[in-house]
Simulated scan of single mutants.
Amino acid sequence: MTASNMTHVYVLSDSVGETAELVARAAISQFDTDHVTTTRVPYVDDRTVVDEVIEKARATSGVIVFTIVLPEIRHYLLDEASQKDVPVYDILTPLLNILETKIDAPPKNETGLLYTLDEDYFKKVEAIEFAVKYDDGRDPRGVLRADVVLVGVSRTSKTPLSQYLAHKRLKVANVPLVPEVDPPEELFSIPADRVIGLKISPEKLNGVRIERLKALGLKEQANYATFQRIEEELTHAQSVMDRIGCKVIDVSERAVEETANLIYQAVQKR
């Protein structure tokens, strides 16, 4: 493929540029071709960068897509591109103009407002880091600090549930229940309504574990996936959950999102 056969899309932004690039890629995806390249140019805040990109676009017969809110840079880009006969697409201005009329107030014209680090953002990051740190029972101290603790046998989606709930700003610890390992005493020292047990049918768990073994390149006959081992683990897990007195959710036929919503609702009611 020669350069002359490629369509070059230059994505400009006075911030990160993710929004503009997503729009460009969404449009490109509507065409059955691999002959389009995108180049993102973030933090455009002076005319020199604009001149450089326009020259590249003109040399490659390219297209410029942009989300620039700084008026002086935006106007300069539009004027220069028009003079150099370079196609441009302004993503934000048409919508800003409509909203300005409807809201009856001018836009702030400040860069990066979408990515402002507010309190909610930090809470989400903290929850995600918490879920990673206290995943798979690595540190039982997390049980005492968590908003909710998930317990269950291996392959009951404890980790993906922890991450999903972290995006809802919940600090989640999870603890695997294995017959050979005593559960941490911390599980029995916190209120039962802060613990959620995850159960699964033997048949479903057998299928999930077999697929896991295949993915790891191991034999399907490994003890990990046998019904005898599964029944032993499930019986042990149920006894621990009964001892805690916690709410138990059957994940056999539920998607992670559905289970996560049930857990989130239980926490909210608490």
Score class of each variant (00 low, 15 high):
80 E>K: 15
115 Y>C: 05
95 L>P: 01
93 T>E: 11
93 T>Y: 07
96 L>C: 06
114 L>C: 05
78 L>S: 14
103 I>F: 13
118 D>Q: 00
94 P>L: 04
122 F>I: 00
72 E>T: 12
106 P>D: 14
112 G>V: 07
100 E>D: 14
84 K>T: 05
95 L>W: 01
113 L>E: 07
111 T>M: 10
107 P>G: 12
101 T>A: 12
98 I>A: 15
72 E>L: 08
116 T>H: 05
80 E>Y: 14
106 P>C: 13
87 P>W: 10
121 Y>D: 04
80 E>H: 15
127 A>Q: 00
77 L>P: 11
120 D>W: 01
96 L>F: 04
120 D>C: 04
108 K>E: 13
104 D>F: 11
99 L>Y: 05
114 L>K: 08
95 L>H: 00
117 L>H: 04
119 E>T: 03
102 K>V: 15
91 I>K: 01
127 A>I: 00
117 L>A: 11
85 D>G: 03
85 D>K: 13
98 I>G: 13
91 I>R: 02
127 A>V: 00
99 L>M: 12
115 Y>V: 03
124 K>C: 05
76 Y>D: 14
104 D>L: 06
89 Y>R: 05
88 V>W: 08
102 K>E: 15
129 E>Q: 04
124 K>Q: 08
117 L>N: 05
82 S>A: 06
78 L>N: 09
101 T>E: 12
83 Q>R: 15
96 L>K: 00
98 I>V: 15
74 R>H: 06
78 L>Y: 12
108 K>C: 06
116 T>Y: 09
85 D>N: 04
110 E>Q: 15
110 E>H: 09
109 N>A: 12
87 P>M: 08
114 L>N: 08
114 L>V: 08
81 A>N: 10
81 A>I: 08
113 L>A: 06
77 L>M: 14
98 I>R: 15
84 K>D: 09
128 I>P: 01
75 H>C: 12
81 A>P: 07
75 H>M: 05
81 A>L: 09
85 D>Q: 08
75 H>S: 15
74 R>M: 03
116 T>M: 04
86 V>M: 07
102 K>A: 13
109 N>I: 02
112 G>N: 13
111 T>F: 04
122 F>W: 02
88 V>F: 10
72 E>W: 07
81 A>Q: 05
125 V>P: 00
84 K>E: 10
107 P>T: 02
113 L>C: 04
97 N>G: 09
97 N>Y: 05
125 V>R: 01
112 G>E: 12
116 T>Q: 10
77 L>I: 09
127 A>R: 00
107 P>D: 11
111 T>V: 09
